[in-house]
Design a protein around this nucleic acid. Structure first.
Length: 472
RNA sequence: UCCCCAGUAGCUCAGUCGGUAGAGCAGGUGGCUGUUAACCACCGGGUCCGUGGUUCGAGUCCGCGCUGGGGAGCCA
């Protein structure tokens, strides 16, 4: 790089990451670090600072000697302070850590005070949620967001390795008939004086010339791309304006939606299984330190669970079999288990946790409880749908083979009250060059819940959006 | 949206039968020759979520509201 003016940009202030420092093979003089202080332990002649920069779970112990020039500032350095340190990386003479930094110079960049909410003690996840701007500096959320980062990368790696094309489907869309949930409205009309006719808002005068909202699914557009590129996937933000108040729902989340041409429901389940296993293996191989923390503090036995899953075959049961299994389980449920009724959360959990004891695909649901685009089976009353259920989290994947036969699809749309004209482009795919295809939607946050053991979806997304809460 | 539970110091929580507010951590001061969410001593710190009521007296009992959590529905 060439600096064209007289600004004193040296480009020499870059630090060594703590991850890199801890990975050193030998003692190194003159190492420069930056980070946030986790705890300070002061003695008469020595002060110990735990420094964390988020590059890894571990902190690095910084040792300040009483008469070192670095000692000047340490009285003002408390938990949470941001500092830069230069010193020698040496093998620690005390047990508890291999490396420590003998400080020669400390620069206090940003101090803290008594009101700093993040203390060196256990906080409740509920409290940390109220300080979402600071919680990434905690052990738990540091680990969560490093795993989230690793798995985001793994999503792309998995699909790219398999030759899938990444497609960015629109975030603003005019389809509100996808059956996936309530939409957030997108409009530029003045809420005080919208154009009206006979008391109704004239959406034709809105920005896009029709009623639009934030996407609830990229599936329909992914299907369009699948009929040109064969195998495609989306990975992007998804919005649901449902008034859902549970530990598994947020209004804004990230969804992964692969769509494959020349594929049936069996191919779909196989892809889902391979994908899920790939994510788990990737986490085991790349996030060992963070997973160990989750295993010790969040979900006992987590690593065993993940390792078992990596080697296990996923079970597939039909909806009809699932109903029979639940009926003969002898378990008393609050809601009836009966063919034709949707499985309740309690049924799904019993199935995956108690009867199967691991991830399970439930396939071939009754047509009347599933979406219009799912392919009708030969029996005439079920559709080629699949839900993947996992212990603790419940439904993590929902997918299907799509109805590629135009006359069946159109008839089904009329049955459920969707005008074929409104989705003419979707029907056109069946009109010209139609082919069997299948895909699914996987909630990225629910995957993270499974992998980290975190029990509330609000704790695996940086700044959760839920009814009544869009702070931060 | 419905059902259940909770709200006390900056944080985690105790507070008995209704009798006038407590601990640990954090913060401040001092001590300590290598500490591991250090330790020891002392100090400061309260709209008991809000509101209305019952009572001689309410953190405690009752009504309403707000906020948070768990569960259900919707789903990923």
């Amino acid at each position: 790089m060439t600096i064209m003016n007289n600004r004193p940009l040296t480009g020499k202030s870059r630090r060594t990451s703590i991850k890199a420092a801890l990975a050193q093979e030998r003692e190194t003089p003159g190492v420069h670090l930056g980070g946030w202080v986790r705890t300070v332990r002061g003695g008469k002649e020595l002060t110990f600072l735990e420094l964390n920069d988020g590059s890894c779970f571990a902190s690095l112990q910084v040792v300040v000697e009483e008469n070192s020039p670095a000692a000047n500032d340490i009285a003002r350095i408390g938990t949470g302070a941001c500092i830069e340190v230069t010193g020698d990386l040496v093998i620690s003479p005390a047990s508890g850590q291999r490396w420590e930094l003998k400080a020669a110079e400390i620069c206090l960049l940003g101090g803290t005070d008594a009101d700093y909410p993040l203390q060196k003690k256990r906080h409740s996840l509920e409290f940390l949620r109220t300080i979402a701007h600071l919680r990434p500096r905690s052990n738990t959320f540091g680990a969560v967001f490093r795993v989230r980062n690793a798995l985001s990368f793994a999503v792309h790696r998995f699909f790219q390795e398999q030759g899938f094309l990444y497609v960015q489907t629109p975030i603003i869309t005019a389809n509100d008939c996808e059956g996936a949930g309530e939409m957030f409205r997108v409009t530029t009309l003045d809420p005080k004086t919208p154009p009206t006719k006979d008391g109704e808002i004239v959406w034709g005068e809105d920005f896009f010339g029709e009623k639009t909202g934030l996407t609830v699914s990229g599936q329909l557009q992914a299907e369009l791309f699948a009929t040109a590129f064969s195998d495609v996937y989306t990975f992007g933000p998804t919005f649901r304006a449902e008034n859902s108040n549970t530990s598994r729902h947020v209004a804004e989340f990230w969804m992964i939606e692969p769509e494959m041409a020349f594929a049936d429901l069996g191919d779909n389940c196989r892809l889902a299984e391979n994908f899920f296993r790939y994510m788990v293996v990737h986490a085991l191989e790349n996030c060992a330190e963070d997973l160990k923390f989750f295993n010790d503090r969040i979900e006992k036995g987590l690593i065993d669970k993940l390792e078992q899953l990596a080697g296990a075959e996923f079970k597939i049961v039909t909806y009809t079999e699932a109903v029979a299994l639940l009926q003969k389980s002898g378990q008393k449920f609050s809601y009836a288990v009966e063919w034709g009724l949707d499985l309740q959360s309690e049924h799904e959990r019993w199935l995956t946790e108690k009867i199967i004891g691991g991830p399970v695909f439930v396939i071939d649901y009754p047509a009347q409880i599933k979406a219009f685009y799912m392919r009708r089976n030969e029996d005439g009353h079920t559709v080629a749908a699949m839900d993947m259920l996992v212990p603790r989290v419940g439904e993590i994947i929902g997918g299907s083979q799509r109805e590629e036969r135009r006359e069946f699809l159109e008839a089904r749309m009329r049955e459920v009250g969707i005008s074929p004209e409104s989705l003419s482009w979707y029907l056109d795919i069946r009109r010209w060059g139609s082919c069997p295809h299948a895909g699914f939607g996987l909630g990225f946050e629910r995957l993270l819940m499974y992998v980290t053991g975190m029990e509330n979806i609000r704790d695996v997304i940086p700044f959760p959006r839920t009814p009544g809460n869009a702070r931060f």
